[in-house]
Amino acid sequence: MQTFVSLSRTMESDIELMLRAKTGDDSAFTELMRRHYKGVVNYVYRFTNDRANSEDLAQEVFLRVYRSVKRYNPQAKFSTWLYKIATNLCITEVKSRNKKQSVSLDEMQENTGDLGDSKSEDPSDLTFRREIGTAIFEALRSLPERERVAIILCKYQDLPYEEVAEVIGCTIGAVKTYVHRGRMKLIEKLKTYL
């Protein structure tokens, strides 16, 4: 019986979990976080290229979701809602960073890259990965906001065009145009790596 209950719990959709969380069930929210936190951390990382602060910002995203759980409309897909909140937060963060320019280039290089076992990796590979990571980040950063969001959501978060359209607040056709335009610009910016 317990197995059945736990199985049915794992089969619960995000919406069902959110509805439970809405009634004050924190375990449902924990399950939602467990499903999505890695994606959100990486999404934030694509915007900031700052691994040290990505988790803090991702926590801020979930905190906002948690605080506004009562306002959740079950018609919207949870991930759409989640990435909408994350996008707003990331854009605000990027703008404030651009103003402050507090993160130095060295600091950025230090914070770039994954949290994997870098000691076991070939140093030249690690250097290349950092270099290409920074180049891609800079290339994406130079794109207009919507193109950048569309590419990150499609490429790195694997979101379908429909969902990306909802997050950005435009049509599916517009998303495709943003992705296409961004892609064309990236060819120019990353030419040396092609």
């Binding site: 926590q59 994954d114 949290l115």
Partner: peptide, 22 residues
């Protein structure tokens, strides 16, 4: 260029994300 974007690897998250959140 689309495939090149795959070279920007994901970050590995710490295991205590959820306890830290609560």
């Amino acid at each position: 260029v689309w495939n090149l974007l795959d070279n920007w690897h994901t970050v590995q998250t710490k295991n205590d994300f959820i306890p830290r959140f609560w």
